[in-house]
Design a protein around this nucleic acid. Structure first.
Length: 281
RNA sequence: GCGUCGGUGGUAGAGUGGUCAAUUACAACAGACUGUAAAUCUGUCGGCCUUAGGCCUACGAAGGUUCGAAUCCUUCCCGACGCA
């Protein structure tokens, strides 16, 4: 039996993913699931480059505005909600199109990564955060030598999470992948660096014209703390156009390092070519 | 014109006789990724040799002092400031 198809459109920011996704959805009767770690929050619109109602052109979008910015969203929530969305779309006899630039989220779905079922423990994290990485590493060594060996010894965030998992499960389970029963078709949009740079520049300028600063003000008024705002990235941390452009370029590069290692991605520079390739599939 | 301070690698900016191819930050390039992922973390970063290591070219320019200079001296060029 043939597995249902799920199309994945990924790539760096400002490469025209959303556009392609909508166009494709229109053509093949699809519905779109966003794969963006910040667009899941309501109220983060301009700074995250979230698609507008108008741009959606009537195509349903999932995983946008699913939580309040005060709540911390995680990959696992993304996984659960996305799997549900896929099922729902398929039930309607439509084609799911995952579209976004958060590689980690995309992999969580397409590879079916099984994350240890241990909830974040704020208290523990706070306490462990006071320790040095060396201290955390030696603690970890005592608790789970296997994980201690393969963990990045300088990465505090990971060290803390490892200990957090051990407190509940006794050890850090080996990473598992539980492939979902779908046939994922991965399409990457790629632009030459100079063109990408120009696109990012105009996009960022538009962000400011569209009232990014006002969006930040509104978020603050609704009770989002300064600290929390910083967590949403440079657009939300006292942004200036120059700064945002610079940081976005760096981010785009980091996105590429993630995507580069996935040989399943078929890359296109021209969205139209990607479109034609997908239509005939 | 006189005086003062300064000119360092892609940028900013330490170093002020040997341990200096030169702290650090940023940029650049590469990479990791077990519930924060626009997060977090790592490596390289003058040239050549496969590495230990070695060789060459380098701290505005040219000379000089010294066993040894980015560091001291002289002259010149450039910049900032002050006085004319």
């Amino acid at each position: 039996m043939k597995k249902p198809q799920v199309i994945v459109i990924l790539g760096q920011t400002a490469t025209g993913k959303s556009n392609l996704a909508v166009k494709l959805a229109k053509k093949i009767n699809g519905e779109i699931i966003s794969a963006d770690s910040r667009q899941v929050y309501s109220g983060l619109n301009i700074g995250t480059g979230k698609i507008t109602k108008k741009e959606m052109r009537g195509v349903p979008h999932y995983l946008l505005d699913v939580v309040s910015p005060k709540h911390k969203f995680t990959v696992v929530e993304y996984q659960t909600k996305t799997i549900k969305a896929i099922t729902e779309i398929l039930k309607k006899k439509k084609i799911p199109i995952i579209c976004g630039g958060t590689g980690y989220y995309i992999d969580a779905i397409t590879k079916g990564v099984v994350f240890p079922e241990v909830l974040a423990n704020a208290k523990l994290r706070k306490r462990l955060n006071k320790k040095t990485t060396a201290e955390l590493l030696s603690t970890l060594k005592k608790l789970d030598i296997v994980r201690a060996k393969n963990i990045d010894p300088n990465n505090k965030v990971r060290l803390i999470r490892a200990i957090e998992i051990i407190k509940v499960l006794g050890s850090v389970p080996k990473i598992k992948e539980n492939k979902l029963p779908y046939d994922f078709i991965k399409i990457g949009l790629f632009l030459p660096p100079d063109i990408l740079k120009k696109k990012i520049e105009t996009r960022v300028k538009k962000m400011f014209q569209n009232g990014l600063l006002n969006e930040i003000k509104k978020l603050k008024q609704s009770g989002v703390s300064e600290k929390r705002l910083k967590e949403f990235g440079f657009e939300y941390n006292m942004p200036t156009p120059e700064k945002v452009i610079k940081e976005t370029l760096k981010y785009a590069k980091r996105q590429m390092t993630w995507f580069k290692r996935d040989p399943e991605i078929k890359w296109f520079t021209d969205p139209n070519e990607a479109f034609s390739a997908l239509k005939t599939d």
